[in-house]
Design a binder for these strands. Structure first.
Length: 283
DNA sequence: ATGGGGGCCTGCCGGC
DNA sequence: TGCCGGCAGGCCCCCA
């Protein structure tokens, strides 16, 4: 799924057609995704104006003029596609409904936002805007990696004493928000740190070095419109292209691209997920 | 408290 | 062609 750069890309695509606009009609085609939708979700969305579209970690938050906030998570395979946009920046005609179109928002400006999610690991909920941060799913999430609270002293302290592999630690949303399998692999490659190394065992200076690297990888990916492997699309249906910049992810058996390194990218399984790394230069 | 594994779903790809 | 196993960008929950 969408990790932070993909979610941010979707948010940026939706903002021009949603912010300040009224949801003329919300259509909800099933009772749940990963969890049941909140009661009367369609009714609570219909007629509401979207005041702001925000992102927290991998969640999109749409603040409504009713004092409620629509929380959206794309799970592994969720897409939000825009059609019928009066600005002419998106597919103009509404395409035929497709399998797994679970929620459709028709905006008063003519734009239609379709949430499609084959695997249904995504989620939607409605929460009070004033206390949104306290929502069960948001309360435990760590600092935004592109924000000021994610800094060298913080990460050093957060990894200190951790007996888990650094790969697992960086995937832990309580430590840092928004990283997923791809960007952890890429950040560790750039930092030349093995995903197998115990988090608490890495020298503080090397841990600190990961902070600007994580920021840089995410910033580059956002700039590229995210990574498209199988399902990810931007809100306008276009592909992201950061996948062409991967040094590690998905490159098993291919030569390491680190300067002067003669290694080959390997794939191992950690906590049930693939880790791609160069055993020669990542230590 | 921390770490590891199962499970939730569907779709796709490669091998036979 | 068809079937089957394996795999997939996430994350909650249970167990040791």
């Amino acid at each position: 799924m969408p990790e932070l750069p993909e979610v941010e890309t979707v948010r940026r695509g939706l903002a021009p057609v949603m912010e300040g606009q009224v949801i003329a009609q919300a259509q909800v085609n099933r009772p749940d995704l990963r969890w049941p939708f909140p009661p009367l979700m369609a009714e609570r969305l219909t007629g509401r104006r979207v005041m702001a579209l925000r992102r927290r970690s991998k969640y999109i938050l749409a603040d409504l003029d009713s004092g409620e906030t629509l929380l959206i998570h794309l799970g592994m395979s969720g897409r939000m596609l825009v059609s019928g946009d009066p600005l002419g920046r998106f597919v103009h005609d509404h395409p035929a409904a497709e399998k797994h179109d679970h929620v459709v928002l028709d905006m008063a400006n003519g734009a239609r936002i379709t949430f499609n999610d084959p695997r249904r690991f995504g989620a939607m909920d409605l929460l009070d805007t004033a206390t949104a941060e306290n929502h069960k799913l948001l309360a435990v999430i760590g600092p935004e990696p592109l924000g000021n609270d994610f800094n060298e002293p913080y990460l050093v302290a957060a990894l200190k004493g951790r007996n888990t592999p650094v790969k697992s630690a960086l995937l832990d949303q309580r430590i840092v928000a928004g990283l997923g399998n791809i960007y952890v692999c890429e950040a560790l490659f750039r930092a030349r740190i093995s995903p197998r190394r115990k988090a608490g065992q890495i020298a503080a200076a090397r841990v600190a070095g990961m902070v600007p690297i994580i920021r840089q990888v995410l910033a580059e990916a956002i700039e590229a419109g995210g990574s498209s492997l199988r399902d990810f699309r931007q809100a306008d249906g276009e592909l992201g292209y950061f996948q062409h910049s991967f040094d590690a992810y998905g490159r098993e058996g291919e030569p390491c691209r680190a300067a002067g390194c003669t290694g080959t990218i390997a794939r191992i399984v950690q906590a049930g997920r693939s880790s791609f790394y160069c055993p020669l230069c990542q230590r």
